[in-house]
Amino acid sequence: MRFMMIVKASKDSEAGTMPKEQMEQMFAEMKKYNDELKETGVLVAVGGLHPSSNGIRILYPVPGEPPTIEEGPFTEIKELVAGYWFIDVNSREEAIEWAMRAPDPHGLGEGQIELRQVFE
């Protein structure tokens, strides 16, 4: 079963700001976690995303009409994605266990991970 662990954005991730010492610690914790995912064969892919100020949305407001383009930044930070892991596990429970072991993705007590199963 494949799952996407979606790291929700924060004000800091959208602004690209974080104190250097917190960044170094967070990256060290993430590297350790990612290495563990790789070593166990669970990790399919991992990545972080640029802030939504660099993003583009393709909108389909009217059925049958051409889509429109909306340039970032996007305002609803709590709805934005800052990064992700794709994992391949044996059960929903195992996916939850891995998600619970992830370090706080923002390192400030603001982290949030959404876990979604991928259609296969």
Score class of each variant (00 low, 15 high):
R2E: 14
F3C: 03
F3I: 08
F3Y: 15
M4F: 08
M4W: 04
M5R: 11
M5S: 12
M5N: 14
I6C: 11
I6H: 10
I6D: 07
V7I: 15
K8C: 06
A9T: 07
A9N: 05
A9G: 09
A9R: 02
S10N: 04
S10K: 01
K11E: 14
D12C: 08
D12L: 10
D12P: 01
D12W: 04
E14H: 13
E14V: 12
G16A: 13
T17G: 04
T17N: 12
M18F: 13
E21G: 01
E21T: 10
Q22A: 11
E24L: 08
E24A: 11
Q25F: 04
M26C: 05
F27K: 07
A28E: 14
A28I: 05
K31L: 03
K32Y: 08
D35M: 01
D35Y: 05
E36T: 14
L37C: 11
L37K: 13
K38R: 15
E39G: 09
E39S: 12
T40I: 00
G41K: 04
G41Q: 03
G41H: 05
V42M: 00
V44S: 01
A45G: 01
A45K: 08
V46Y: 08
G47N: 06
G47T: 02
L49K: 09
N54K: 12
N54C: 00
G55N: 09
G55D: 06
R57H: 06
I58L: 04
Y60C: 00
Y60Q: 06
V62H: 11
P63A: 09
G64M: 01
G64E: 02
P66W: 07
P66C: 00
P67H: 11
T68H: 01
T68I: 10
I69Q: 07
E70K: 15
E70H: 13
E71D: 15
E71V: 03
E71L: 07
E71G: 09
P73V: 08
P73T: 13
F74P: 07
F74A: 08
T75G: 09
T75V: 10
E76P: 00
I77F: 05
I77R: 04
E79I: 03
L80Y: 03
A82G: 10
A82N: 04
G83Q: 03
G83R: 03
G83Y: 03
Y84R: 02
W85P: 01
F86Q: 05
I87L: 02
I87E: 04
V89F: 02
V89G: 01
V89N: 03
V89D: 03
N90F: 00
S91Q: 06
R92T: 10
R92P: 00
E94N: 09
E94C: 02
I96F: 08
I96S: 01
E97C: 00
E97T: 12
E97R: 13
W98H: 13
A99N: 09
A99Y: 01
M100Q: 14
M100I: 00
M100F: 02
R101Q: 11
R101C: 00
R101D: 01
R101N: 06
A102K: 03
P103K: 12
P105H: 08
H106W: 13
H106A: 09
G107A: 12
G111D: 06
Q112P: 00
Q112S: 11
I113V: 15
I113D: 05
I113K: 05
E114C: 02
L115E: 06
R116A: 09
R116H: 14
Q117G: 10
V118R: 11
V118A: 14
F119S: 12
E120N: 14
E120G: 13
E120V: 13
